[in-house]
C-alpha cells in the first residue's frame, strides 16, 4: 500500500467469552474500511450489530478483540482529543453552565491559552449553534435539542480531526432533528471535518453523508456494503427528495435493512478476512 487513507480499519473484531470455555460470541468480525479526509460517513445497521462498539473503539473508549485502526498512518490506542465524540445522551456535565461545558473542552485541548481567548473561542462555537442567549443556563434548564446543540458545539470547538457521532439525533423529535441536522451541515461545511456517524434514520443518512456503510445483522456482523450518496451538496431536506437518485438510494437502504441484512450475516455467508465492503453506486 503506497497511499494511506486518513482512517484505515483493518480486520476489526469484537467478541465476548461465551458460557462454556473456549466458546465465544462474536459481535462483528472482518470489519475493513477506509475513510478519506473530509468524508462524512454514516453507518446503518440493526441493533446489536456492533456499530456503537466500532464507534467506541475508534473513540478509544472500548478495545477491539482483534484488528487495527490507523489514523494518519499511526495506530490508534486510547482516547484522544484528535477524535471528538458526540454522544446520543449529550453527556454534558450538569453542574456546569452551557459556556462552562465548552470552556471545559477548549481548556482541555489548549491548556496554555489565556482565559479570554478560551472564552472567546467557546462563545464563537456556541453562536454557531445559535445558543448565544443561553450561555449561563445549566443543562437541566435546556431542552433536548438545545442540549444536543451544546454537545455539538463542544465537539467542534476542540477541532478534532475525526468526529464520532453515536446516534446524535436519536432522542430528539422529528422537527428539532431536522433543524439541528441543517445546523450540523452548516458547521460541517465550514470546517470540513471527517465525520463517522451512526444512525437508524435512512433519510438522515442520505441527507448528511458522502458514503453509507451498511452492516449486516449480528452476531458475526459484517460491513457488507458501502453505498455512495450521489446527490450533490449543498443538500437541503426539502430539495433532495426531488433528486432522481434519492429514492433509488433510499429503496436500496430500506431493502437492505428489511430483507438482506439478515442473509448477509456472517453466520450465513463465508467471509474472507480481507474483504472490503462492496461499493455500490446508484447514480443515474
Amino acid at each position: 500500500m503506497s497511499k494511506h487513507s486518513f482512517l484505515e480499519i483493518q480486520g476489526l473484531k469484537k467478541s465476548y467469552p461465551g458460557q462454556t470455555k473456549g466458546e465465544e460470541t462474536v459481535i462483528f468480525e472482518h470489519a475493513n474500511f477506509n475513510i478519506e479526509k473530509g468524508e462524512f460517513i454514516c453507518v446503518i445497521g440493526h441493533s446489536g450489530c456492533g456499530k456503537s462498539t466500532i464507534l467506541n473503539i475508534l473513540a478509544g473508549l472500548d478495545e477491539a478483540s482483534d484488528g487495527l485502526v490507523f489514523m494518519n498512518g499511526k495506530e490508534v490506542s486510547g482516547p484522544s482529543l484528535e477524535r471528538g465524540v458526540i454522544f446520543q445522551n449529550y453527556s454534558l456535565l450538569p453542574w456546569k453552565t452551557t459556556l462552562e461545558n465548552i470552556v471545559f473542552a477548549v481548556r482541555a485541548k489548549w491548556p496554555h491559552w489565556p482565559k479570554e481567548k478560551i472564552i472567546e473561542h467557546s462563545k464563537h462555537y456556541l453562536s454557531l449553534v445559535g445558543l448565544d442567549h443561553a450561555l449561563d443556563r445549566k443543562p437541566a434548564q435546556l431542552s433536548g435539542g438545545m442540549r444536543q446543540r451544546v454537545s455539538i458545539a463542544r465537539a467542534f470547538s476542540t477541532q478534532p480531526e475525526l468526529l464520532l457521532m453515536d446516534e446524535p439525533f436519536g432522542a430528539l423529535d422529528a422537527l428539532t432533528r431536522g433543524v439541528i441536522q441543517e445546523e450540523l451541515i452548516k458547521i460541517w461545511s465550514e470546517s470540513k471535518q471527517t465525520v463517522f456517524m451512526i444512525t437508524h434514520d435512512v433519510d438522515e443518512a442520505i441527507l448528511l453523508s458522502d458514503r453509507i456503510l451498511l452492516m449486516s445483522n449480528g452476531p458475526h456482523a459484517q460491513i457488507a456494503e458501502s453505498v455512495t450518496v450521489s446527490i450533490p451538496r449543498q443538500r437541503k431536506r426539502t430539495d433532495i427528495i426531488h433528486h432522481p437518485d434519492y429514492y433509488k438510494i433510499r429503496n436500496h437502504l430500506v431493502d437492505f435493512l428489511i430483507n438482506r441484512s439478515k442473509d448477509l450475516s456472517g453466520v450465513a455467508t463465508q467471509v474472507t478476512a480481507g474483504q472490503q465492503p462492496k461499493t455500490i453506486n446508484l447514480a443515474s
Binding site: 482516547p79 471528538g84 454522544f87 445522551n89 453527556s91 456535565l93 453542574w95
Partner: peptide, 26 residues
Amino acid sequence: DWINVAKTHQLSPIQTAFQVILPAAA
C-alpha cells in the same frame, strides 16, 4: 458518560478526579 467525557478530552487522572468525579460526587 461523564467519565467518558473526561477520557475523550484526555484529562489526566488528577484532572478527572477534580474536574469531573469530585463535582459529580459532591
